[in-house]
Simulated scan of single mutants.
Amino acid sequence: MLVATVIASVTFQAGLNPPGGVWQQDSENGTEAAGTSILLSKHSDIGYHYFLNFNTVSFVAAVSVLLVEISGLPVRYKFFIWLLALTMIIAIWAMAVAYFNALYLVNPTYLVGIYLADIFSVVLLAAGAVHIIRLLFWIGKLLLKFVLWLITKHPANDAVNV
């Protein structure tokens, strides 16, 4: 819950105070309005919107974890714990991608950040894949137990009654 709170705070702050800042007053030619992002007008819309999209995904994932935690849902069950962990993986991954994107927007010549973003994405995708595989094994074990219960508790009626 602490990590989700920190991620929500960081992404909230980055969303309202984007990297590079905002225009403090309207421009004389009317192209920039006060309160809009400086990077939005200086770079392509695509790069800035990538930053905003990943930042928003991270914020929503972190706030979702907080809502589940404080809502009183039974988090003692394996599925809820799995769901919360996967949501945190998504929040951390999206926050990292937003960071690396903001780093590129502020300093496009710093290419190390792009390579680190790729490496980090692969590591987190692997962690997510392992997490999903663990869920599939858990569901498989439950299905196997259920099938074995059906076989032992409900014998077939194909025997000849004597």
Rank of each mutant, 00 (worst) to 15 (best):
P155L: 14
Q13H: 10
L16H: 15
I133A: 12
F51D: 06
I90G: 04
T152I: 14
Q25V: 10
I7F: 10
I70M: 09
T87M: 11
A85M: 00
A98V: 06
I81N: 06
L148F: 07
A117V: 01
E28W: 07
H154F: 15
F146V: 07
V10R: 09
M1R: 04
A62G: 08
Q24T: 04
M1H: 05
S27A: 10
W93F: 05
G140S: 09
P74N: 13
N157L: 12
T87Y: 01
E28M: 09
A34Y: 01
A94Y: 01
H43T: 15
Y77R: 08
V130M: 09
K153C: 02
E32T: 03
I70D: 08
W23G: 01
L116W: 00
T152E: 12
S37C: 12
H154T: 15
L40G: 03
F12Y: 15
V123K: 02
V162T: 12
F137L: 10
S64Q: 11
L52Q: 15
G15W: 05
A85F: 00
F12M: 07
G47V: 09
L111W: 07
Q24S: 07
R76M: 05
I92M: 10
G113Q: 03
S64T: 14
P74W: 02
L124Q: 06
I90R: 01
T36V: 13
L52V: 15
A96R: 00
A85V: 00
A62D: 08
D118G: 09
W93S: 13
S27M: 04
K141D: 07
E28C: 03
A126P: 02
E69V: 06
Y115G: 14
L124Y: 04
V97A: 11
L105M: 14
R134M: 02
N29V: 10
P155I: 08
V97Q: 12
T11V: 06
F146I: 09
L39D: 02
M95K: 00
K145T: 00
W149N: 08
K145N: 12
I114F: 07
T87K: 05
L143Q: 09
